[in-house]
Simulated scan of single mutants.
Amino acid sequence: MTLGSSQPAPDSRTTEAMPAGISAVFACGAPPSLLALTVQGDLLFRRISGEWCPLERLAPCSLPGFSFAVATCELGFATVLGGRAVIGRINSDCPEPSIQSRVFEEAVICGAPALIENDRMAFPVRSGSSVKIAFYDFRSESWSEMAVAGYFADSEGYFAVPVQNRSAVPDTFWVGRRNYLVLGSDFGERSGELRDFGPEVHAVLGPLPYRDKSDILHVLIETESSFAFQSLTSNPRTKPLDGPHLAAGNQSYFSRLAYPSVLDDEPVALQIEAGVDRILLPLAFSETTGSRNEGTLLVYVEGVTSSPDIFSDDTSRVFRGSLYWHSGVRLFNLQATLQFRSRYDIIVYQIGKALFAGSATTGVLHRWDCI
């Protein structure tokens, strides 16, 4: 998640209650309204007073944690609930959206939607090992489909949350365990392709890709012998790693080290006891005008024996972590702790100059003023 270019003030922290079982917070419409979804499918609206009001009950969340997301635009939002593509259109006179859904016969929606050009949403859909992309156009209120070259290596699996580069017409990537789907643009025409990571290689699903200074995305992969960053390009580059580096924007973290570049051999050493059953998990970041990290919101997690475990949907474990803001060589303690079962229990969002972070496990939401 990208934040505004400001830093939370640790001493400004306050707390408030968060709706039970919340799975996503998002803003859409013009002017934007703040909405939330729970795991049970309840759609909520946040009033100016901070009160959350129920709007409508939809289907429960059906995608795995690493795949669930909500895509938004001024005209509304899109997500996947109960195996259906859900479209919520925003009426400028009323915060309550009009909801419609679509099921794809003999096919499965295998990832969250992504917003592409001109208020269009793109959904990946698989039937066996074949994949197509379904588009919903908010302006014309119509659906269309496009075939995709290649085959999904995991015919019963799902893609992780989609990510995009910063091109004028951005490419969109949905990463699976053994291959990934890219929706690109050739001379103004959309094209889709499935690309393999290679034999005996699989992606670690959940961690966000690293973005280098050339705006190339690199995904965390694992082989039988090591972890690595692999670029999402037609001719991939691989950077072997000494462990699972968790990335946020142009920066990655391993043990107590922060790496400002994927090729940097001189990382910043942070004054914190991370490395043995403890990790620094990046949640969100702010950027400079040059797309470099200006600051990163971290949670210092204890009791983690394997970093990828924190991205699983296993609810039998409970993690505990302290929140920090990292900027340059400094680490600011935000005086707040989170209790959560996986990364997907942690909710982060920003409204104006206020930063919010909390856990669906405890229902406590922390708020900081940003300076």
Results as ranks from 00 to 15, higher is better:
residue 5 S to I: 11
residue 7 Q to H: 10
residue 7 Q to F: 13
residue 7 Q to L: 12
residue 8 P to D: 07
residue 9 A to E: 15
residue 11 D to N: 11
residue 12 S to G: 04
residue 18 M to K: 07
residue 19 P to D: 03
residue 19 P to E: 02
residue 20 A to N: 10
residue 24 A to F: 13
residue 25 V to Q: 06
residue 31 P to Y: 07
residue 31 P to G: 10
residue 36 A to P: 02
residue 41 G to M: 08
residue 47 R to D: 05
residue 49 S to I: 07
residue 50 G to P: 04
residue 51 E to Y: 00
residue 56 E to Q: 15
residue 57 R to D: 00
residue 64 P to Y: 14
residue 68 F to Q: 09
residue 70 V to K: 10
residue 71 A to R: 04
residue 74 E to N: 15
residue 76 G to I: 11
residue 77 F to L: 05
residue 77 F to M: 07
residue 78 A to I: 02
residue 79 T to C: 15
residue 79 T to R: 12
residue 81 L to N: 07
residue 82 G to S: 10
residue 82 G to F: 10
residue 85 A to P: 00
residue 86 V to R: 01
residue 86 V to Q: 04
residue 90 I to K: 08
residue 92 S to F: 13
residue 93 D to E: 14
residue 93 D to K: 12
residue 95 P to D: 10
residue 99 I to Y: 02
residue 101 S to I: 08
residue 102 R to N: 06
residue 107 A to P: 02
residue 107 A to D: 02
residue 110 C to H: 07
residue 115 L to E: 14
residue 117 E to P: 00
residue 123 F to N: 04
residue 124 P to Y: 09
residue 125 V to E: 04
residue 126 R to E: 08
residue 127 S to C: 14
residue 128 G to Y: 06
residue 135 F to C: 08
residue 142 S to Y: 07
residue 143 W to H: 07
residue 144 S to M: 01
residue 147 A to P: 03
residue 148 V to N: 03
residue 150 G to V: 03
residue 153 A to Y: 01
residue 157 G to Y: 07
residue 159 F to L: 11
residue 164 Q to L: 04
residue 165 N to G: 07
residue 166 R to H: 11
residue 166 R to F: 03
residue 176 G to E: 08
residue 183 L to V: 11
residue 185 S to V: 08
residue 189 E to D: 14
residue 192 G to R: 00
residue 193 E to G: 03
residue 194 L to Q: 05
residue 198 G to C: 05
residue 200 E to D: 15
residue 201 V to A: 00
residue 202 H to F: 14
residue 202 H to Y: 14
residue 205 L to G: 01
residue 213 K to G: 04
residue 214 S to K: 11
residue 222 E to H: 08
residue 222 E to V: 13
residue 225 S to L: 11
residue 231 S to F: 00
residue 233 T to W: 03
residue 234 S to D: 11
residue 235 N to F: 06
residue 236 P to A: 03
residue 237 R to V: 09
residue 242 D to P: 00
residue 248 A to D: 05
residue 248 A to I: 00
residue 249 G to L: 04
residue 250 N to C: 10
residue 251 Q to F: 07
residue 253 Y to Q: 05
residue 256 R to N: 15
residue 258 A to Y: 01
residue 259 Y to N: 02
residue 262 V to A: 06
residue 263 L to K: 03
residue 268 V to N: 06
residue 271 Q to V: 12
residue 273 E to N: 14
residue 277 D to M: 14
residue 280 L to T: 04
residue 281 L to E: 01
residue 286 S to K: 00
residue 287 E to T: 13
residue 289 T to M: 13
residue 296 T to D: 02
residue 296 T to A: 04
residue 301 V to C: 05
residue 301 V to T: 10
residue 304 V to F: 12
residue 304 V to N: 08
residue 304 V to Q: 06
residue 306 S to V: 01
residue 308 P to M: 00
residue 309 D to M: 00
residue 312 S to D: 10
residue 314 D to K: 13
residue 315 T to W: 02
residue 317 R to L: 11
residue 319 F to A: 02
residue 322 S to P: 01
residue 327 S to C: 09
residue 331 L to Y: 12
residue 334 L to M: 12
residue 335 Q to E: 12
residue 338 L to K: 09
residue 339 Q to N: 11
residue 339 Q to L: 10
residue 340 F to E: 08
residue 342 S to Q: 09
residue 343 R to C: 11
residue 345 D to G: 05
residue 347 I to R: 04
residue 350 Q to L: 04
residue 352 G to Q: 06
residue 353 K to N: 13
residue 357 A to C: 15
residue 358 G to E: 07
residue 360 A to W: 05
residue 364 V to K: 13
residue 369 D to V: 12
